[in-house]
C-alpha cells in the first residue's frame, strides 16, 4: 500500500493541472472573501451595524458565502475537478494500463487515489478557508471576531463537504470512464438537475404534496452540511440537520464509490 500511495503522491504532484487548480481554488477563495469582507466593512462604516448583521458573519465570510445555505462552495467545486482528473487522465490518455502494470493490485491503486486526492483537497480547502478568515479579520476586526463561534466548526464541515464532493466526482468519473462527461455532470447535477426536480415537485400535481422529499436531493442535502443558518427539527427532519445532510450526501458518495470499486476491479482496464 505504501508503494501505491507513493505512486499516487508522485502522480498528483507532477501534473500541471494540480497546481493551477490548487492555485485557482486559493485565489478564488481568498479573493471572494476579501471582496466580501471589504464590501461589508464599507457598508458597516457608512450605514452602521446591527447584531443581526453580525449573525454567523464569520462562517459566511470564510466559506465564500456557502455557509449562508444559498449557494454551493466555489472552492470545493474547483477542487473536485482534481478528483475528476485523477481518474479521467487514466482513461483519456491511456495511462490506466501503464498504471496497472506498475501497480498490479487494483484495490491498492483505487484506495490510494481516493486517499491521496482526498487528503490534498482537505489540506487545500482548509488552507483556503483559514486564509480567507485571516484576510476577512483584517477588514472586519472592528466589528466581529471572524474565528469565533461556529467558524471553526463550519470550516471543518466545509472541508468534509469538499472531500465528499471530490470522492463523489471521482466515483462518477471512474464509473463512466469519461472525463468530459464527469466534468459536465458534476456541475449539471446540482445546478440543473436538482433544480429541475424542484420545479417538477412544485408543478406536477401528483408530486406537489410530497415536496418534503426534496430535502433528500443529494446536493441539497450536502448544502445542509455547511449551512450555518440551518434550523433543523431533527436529524432527518425538514430541513435536514448537518448530520442528516452528511448521511444523505455522503451516502450518495459511498454508493458511487462502491459501484466504482466493483466496476474497477471487474472490468477490463
Amino acid at each position: 500500500m505504501k508503494r501505491a500511495l507513493a505512486y499516487e503522491w508522485t502522480r498528483i504532484r507532477t501534473l500541471r493541472s494540480t497546481w493551477w487548480l490548487t492555485g485557482l481554488a486559493i485565489f478564488l477563495g481568498i479573493g471572494i472573501s476579501t471582496l466580501f469582507a471589504w464590501a461589508i466593512h464599507h457598508d458597516f462604516t457608512n450605514g452602521g451595524v446591527t447584531s443581526e448583521d453580525l449573525d454567523q458573519l464569520g462562517p459566511v465570510v470564510v466559506t465564500q458565502l456557502a455557509a449562508s445555505g444559498e449557494i454551493p462552495s466555489v472552492i470545493c467545486f474547483v477542487l473536485a475537478i482534481l478528483g475528476i482528473f485523477a481518474w479521467g487522465h487514466e482513461y483519456r490518455h491511456g495511462m490506466i494500463r501503464a498504471s496497472l502494470t506498475a501497480l498490479n493490485s487494483r484495490t491498492q491503486l483505487w484506495v490510494a487515489k481516493f486517499l491521496v486526492v482526498g487528503a490534498w483537497v482537505a489540506v487545500v480547502a482548509a488552507v483556503t478557508l483559514i486564509g480567507s478568515g485571516v484576510v476577512a479579520s483584517f477588514f472586519l476586526r472592528d466589528y466581529v471576531d471572524v474565528f469565533s463561534g461556529d467558524t471553526w466548526q463550519i470550516i471543518g464541515r466545509q472541508v468534509l463537504y469538499g472531500v465528499v464532493l471530490t470522492w463523489l466526482a471521482m466515483a462518477f468519473t471512474s464509473i463512466t470512464r469519461s472525463q468530459a462527461f464527469a466534468l459536465v455532470s458534476i456541475f449539471l447535477w446540482p445546478f440543473l438537475i436538482e433544480t429541475l426536480i424542484n420545479v417538477f415537485f412544485r408543478l406536477v400535481p401528483g408530486l406537489r404534496d410530497h415536496t418534503e422529499l426534496l430535502r433528500f436531493r443529494p446536493f441539497d442535502a450536502g448544502g445542509r452540511l455547511v449551512d450555518a443558518f440551518n434550523d433543523p427539527t431533527g436529524t432527518f427532519g425538514d430541513p435536514l440537520s448537518a448530520w442528516g445532510g452528511l448521511v444523505v450526501f455522503g451516502g450518495t458518495a459511498v454508493v458511487g464509490m462502491v459501484a466504482s470499486y466493483l466496476l474497477f476491479t471487474r472490468r477490463d482496464a
Partner: peptide, 18 residues
C-alpha cells in the same frame, strides 16, 4: 501511454515510485 504535459522524467519517476 503517458500524460502529455507530465515531463518524461516525471512520468518515469511516478512509475518508479510504485
Amino acid at each position: 501511454p503517458f500524460h502529455p504535459t507530465r515531463k518524461a522524467r516525471n512520468h518515469l519517476r511516478m512509475l518508479a515510485a510504485a
